[in-house]
C-alpha cells in the first residue's frame, strides 16, 4: 500500500537547509496497522505529509497504492492531535465535509444528502456519539470531539488512514477507550493505518508493525512486528510480553535520544 524508498526531505530553515528526514524506507502492506514512534522532532509528521503527497521528497520515491505520489493522494483520511472541527457546522455537517470534496460523493452530494447523513449517523453510533449529530463541536468534550474527528477521517471510507498523535491531548481513560474504538473500526473496515505517536503503549496495543525513528534527521532504525493475537483486549497491556515490548522500545528510543 505504502512504499517509501530511501526518502530524504530537506526544507529551507533560517540558517540554510534543514534535513528533516534522511534515507527513510518503509513498507506498509494493504490493511496493515503501522505505527511510527520516535523522539519528538524526529520528523514523524513530515512522514505523514510525504505519504499523503502534501510535500515532495527532496530525494527518493514515495508510492501509494502502487503508483508514485506526485500530488495530494486524494484518498487519505487524516486526524490530528487537535480535532479541528469547524465551529460553525454541527457535528454531522462536520462529518460530511469530506463527502463534499472527494469524488464520487462530491458530484451527487446534493441528491444523496439524506443517505450520507444516515451514514454519518451510523458512524457516530459506532464511536459512541449517538444523538450528538446536531450539536455543535464546542458543545462536546475534548474526547468526544476527537471521536467525531476520527469519524470525519473515515466517512468517505478511505483506503488509507493517517493519524498524527490523535489521542495525545486526552486523559488516560478516554485514550484507552478510543484505542478500542479505533481497533474495532479498523477490524471491521480493514483499511490501512499509519499511526504516528510517542505513546509506546498505544503503538504496541494497536499496531501490527512498529517503526522506530531516530532523532533528526529522522531515519527508521528499527522495525518490529507485534504478534499479539487479535482481537486484542486492553488486558494485553498488562501481560509480560507486552511490558517487555514497551520496555524494549523505550530503551531503543532512550538510546537514540542520547546519541
Amino acid at each position: 500500500m505504502i512504499h517509501l524508498d530511501d526518502v530524504s526531505l530537506a526544507y529551507a530553515g533560517r540558517t540554510g537547509p534543514v534535513l528533516a528526514l534522511e534515507g527513510t524506507s518503509i513498507k506498509v502492506a494493504k490493511g496493515e496497522f503501522a505505527a511510527v514512534v520516535g523522539p519528538s522532532g524526529c520528523g514523524k509528521s513530515t512522514l505523514m505529509k510525504l505519504v499523503t503527497g502534501l510535500v515532495k521528497p527532496t530525494k527518493g520515491a514515495v508510492a501509494v497504492d502502487g503508483s508514485p505520489v506526485t500530488g495530494p493522494v486524494k484518498l487519505a483520511g487524516m486526524a490530528f492531535q487537535n480535532a479541528n472541527m469547524l465551529p460553525w457546522r454541527t457535528v454531522i455537517e462536520n462529518l460530511m465535509l469530506p463527502l463534499e470534496i472527494v469524488e464520487p460523493y462530491r458530484s451527487n452530494f446534493r441528491s444523496k444528502k439524506a443517505e450520507y447523513r444516515e451514514r454519518a449517523e451510523t458512524l457516530l453510533d459506532t464511536v459512541g456519539l449517538k444523538g450528538f449529530g446536531d450539536r455543535f463541536p464546542w458543545e462536546l468534550s475534548g474526547g468526544m470531539q476527537q471521536r467525531a474527528s476520527l469519524c470525519r477521517s473515515l466517512i468517505h471510507e478511505p483506503a488509507l488512514l493517517m493519524l498524527d498523535e490523535p489521542f495525545a491531548a486526552l486523559d488516560a481513560f478516554t485514550r484507552e477507550e478510543l484505542w478500542c474504538v479505533l481497533r474495532d473500526v479498523w477490524q471491521r473496515l480493514g483499511f490501512t493505518v499509519v499511526l504516528v505517536t510517542h505513546d509506546l503503549r498505544e503503538a504496541a496495543f494497536l499496531a501490527d508493525t512498529i517503526h522506530v525513528m531516530s532523532a533528526r534527521p529522522g531515519r527508521i532504525i528499527e522495525t518490529r512486528r507485534v504478534d499479539f493475537a487479535r482481537p486484542r483486549s486492553l488486558d494485553v497491556c498488562y501481560e509480560p510480553p507486552f511490558q517487555e515490548l514497551v520496555l524494549a522500545l523505550r530503551n531503543k528510543i532512550a538510546e537514540v535520544r542520547s546519541a
Binding site: 499523503t52 502534501l54 487537535n82 479541528n84 465535509l97 469530506p98
Partner: peptide, 13 residues
C-alpha cells in the same frame, strides 16, 4: 489551521 488545510488537501481539495 494548517492541519485542517492538510486534512482537506489530502482529500484532493
Amino acid at each position: 489551521e494548517p492541519e485542517l488545510e492538510d486534512v482537506l488537501r489530502a482529500l484532493g481539495a
